[in-house]
């Protein structure tokens, strides 16, 4: 055995890149919410990008190392310590049997990603080990439960590249002025002109009500002229506006169909950024042309090939 969970913290879950091809069954996507940090953690160890990592939300997690290994940490800085030594994210590092790895509390960001050689071992359920509690699918025991005390994690490979860090140019940069690119679409034509102005010219504040299903934003009330809508499939990053006018950006554990009007959807890179924003963070939306967004997304993906 390899890592023993001594204190399970706020929320720690196993995630690979999620369930694909099952949305029509009502099954949630899952997968790491900051998929960019997750990819880098796997990349540092030479893993497949679909290898299972631990998504650590906010911290308070304590692990006992039971086998020497090289692990990788990317994403939020949750004040990680290996015994007394501080471990900053965006690097891989050696751990020795008997050491303790602690995640204290968030210094920057919300979710940290811990990768192990070859990925953590977990049963595949509908093609993925991503843990989605609401669907009762995935995770260490296949039932969707988050990691808990006394869970033991092992990994799939014995070899990994030597410890290294990402170059400064590889570490994701925060969008300028926290300006999140949006692909306009869906029911955007049904919003009032004033609401469209407000949507893209106001500052939005991340609410306390933020989890892996969605992030609620506070700001001016947006009004949609369409009162009733037939439920339809909803994509990752969709910006839905319920009747109180306060947008909710839908993340990886969103429901598969929904009946609230939407302004469009964040780009995948913007979703990853939003997943790292603590309540109180101020954001803006910025429209981006589809062709440009696709071009940028392909460039992003090319970093890992």
């Amino acid at each position: 055995m390899s890592l023993l969970i001594e204190r399970s913290g706020a929320l720690a879950n196993l995630h690979d890149s999620g369930r694909v091809g099952v949305r029509h069954l009502g099954v949630t996507q899952g997968g790491g919410a900051d998929w960019i940090a997750q990819n880098w953690a796997n990349w540092l160890l030479g893993n497949s990008l679909n290898a299972a990592v631990i998504e650590i939300t906010l911290g308070s997690l304590e692990l006992l190392v039971e086998r020497d290994a090289c692990l990788a940490l990317c994403g939020a800085d949750l004040g990680a310590q290996l015994d007394e030594q501080n471990i900053k994210p965006w690097r891989s590092f050696n751990v020795r049997r008997g050491q303790r790895l602690r995640f204290n509390n968030p210094l920057q960001g919300v979710r940290a990603y811990l990768a192990a050689p070859g990925g953590f071992s977990a049963p595949l359920v509908l093609g993925s080990c991503s843990s989605v509690r609401r669907d009762q699918l995935g995770g260490l025991h296949g039932d969707g439960q988050p990691l808990s005390n006394a869970d033991r994690l092992s990994w799939n490979a014995t070899q990994a590249p030597s410890p290294r860090e990402l170059a400064a140019s590889q570490i994701p940069q925060r969008p300028e002025n926290s300006n999140l690119p949006v692909i306009l679409g869906a029911q955007i034509a049904d919003f009032s002109g004033q609401s469209l102005f407000d949507a893209f010219n106001s500052t939005w504040t991340v609410d306390q009500r933020a989890d892996r299903m969605g992030v609620r934003l506070l700001g001016p009330a947006l009004r949609c002229e369409r009162q009733q809508m037939v439920s339809e499939g909803v994509p990752l990053g969709a910006i839905q506006v319920p009747s109180d006018g306060q947008p909710i950006v839908l993340l990886n554990d969103r429901q598969t169909i929904g009946g609230y009007p939407r302004l469009g959807a964040l780009t995948p890179a913007a979703v990853a950024h939003l997943a790292q924003c603590l309540p109180g963070t101020e954001l803006q939306f910025r429209p981006m042309a589809l062709a440009e967004a696709q071009r940028q997304h392909r460039l992003l993906l090319a970093q890992w090939t």
Binding site: R23, H24, Q294, R298
Partner: peptide, 22 residues
Amino acid sequence: LLELVPSYTTLLVQYDLTQLDD
């Protein structure tokens, strides 16, 4: 094709944008 979600009056089509553009 990554996802195809039917619902009442619509079909949502998510494609692999490493293989296709809009």
